[in-house]
Design a protein around this nucleic acid. Sequence first.
RNA 1: GGGGGGGUGCCCGAGUGGCCAAAGGGAGCAGACUGUAAAUCUGUCGGCGCAGCCUACGGAGGUUCAAAUCCUCCCCCCCCCA
Length: 417
Amino acid sequence: MEQIVTPEDIPADIREEYEELLLGSVDVLPEGELLHQLVRARTEDRPLRVKLGVDPTAPDIHLGHTVVLRKLAQFQKFGHTAVLIIGDYTSKVGDPSGRSKSRPRLSDDQITANASTYVEQAAKVLDMDRAELTYNGNWLAPLRMDEVLTLSATVTVARMLERDDFSRRYLANEPISMLEFMYPLLQGYDSVAVRADVELGGTDQKFNLLMGRPIMEAYGLVPQSILTVPLLVGTDGEQKMSKSYGNYIGVCDPPEEMFGKVMSIPDVLMVDYWSLLTGAAKREVDEVEHRLQEGAYHPAEAKRDLAEKLVTLYYSAEAARDARAHFDRVFKEKDKPAEIPETALPAEAVVEGRVWLPRLLTSTGLASSNGEARRLIEQGGVRVDDVTVQDAKAEMAPEALRGVVVQVGKRKFLRIR
RNA sequence: GGGGGGGUGCCCGAGUGGCCAAAGGGAGCAGACUGUAAAUCUGUCGGCGCAGCCUACGGAGGUUCAAAUCCUCCCCCCCCCA
């Protein structure tokens, strides 16, 4: 960091605060600025206004979202003000960040629904009682055309095209709409509206975050500093965690599913998850990494511990222990789970007094079509009371199904009532 | 406004009259193995009670015994020039 103020002038506790805020962050720009702000906040006795804008594009939030929320919560912990902006308006524009194509625009209903669950779920990480919660539609919706024009005059097209995802798409002959160009401007305007001192975001937000600075200046404000956090890689180990890639772990996933999904991440991701998601201190993370490298800590065991930690964070220690027991039982010992969901035999499964197995699977939701059900059976993926069925033509009498457990693959179980 | 290039299954992408429910890859699903729903290997991957049939290659018509492939019109995207 640049030493504009000499380290000796800075109280030790602020230096500590700064160090902790740097932990798990990627870019902190402009260099040294945040430290100044922390000092200024202290001397002027004015907490920093730390902005996080989120677009409610998905109905549920996942662990990837919690990385930046944790960082915001950390600022809160140090007495600063968390300003959480729900991008009800910007989500109608669609953030082009990291995208190779335009996002679909969402409807108002979807946005409202998503926003309310977002806030509810963010509360699992953030202290919402002490946070400022706003919606950017409050100030973006009433903007007049001349105000929009004033705003768009602050940025040049060349500057826009410097941006990685835009230039890539431009070179690849892929469409970029003017609408998408507007997005960074609107996000910058949010910073003006809430008079942000610091804005947080994922590394893919760097451009948008930086864009806020000249815009704030143009509106006569002190430009914000920015802090980015890494993007969490999803369970596939390849792409960033995202609902649309289907590689996410939702904070509202039931404990067993959360546990199982954590177990499905590639081994190499374990340490990242540990440091970004559990709130563990650096020393603990280093130790885990070290012991794994030495072979003193079995990877499967480490992953179980990680999964248990995460479930504890979002549920409870008991729920986490149960989830672990469930996992070991079902996947390690290949036994049936302690609790199996039950369902009545659907009426449409019975034809002429007989139940054809594929139809049973389809009607109970264990398979999406009879064709898929057939395939599952032919591949040996279907068990009825622990007996693998391989005849796709199998039929049984409805009475014979009472209390029977149908298993599809390794993790779908259903008891017929 | 003019000229050119494109739109294929969940995604990427091959296919330019029959051998095409459509190569190849990815994702997904199943099986084997294992240290786990890791990794690896194998299989599968539109629907239908399925050795057969139905629906599908931007949309609508047409030519043909036969169309993703040819023709007409329409919609959408990209590039170049203005």
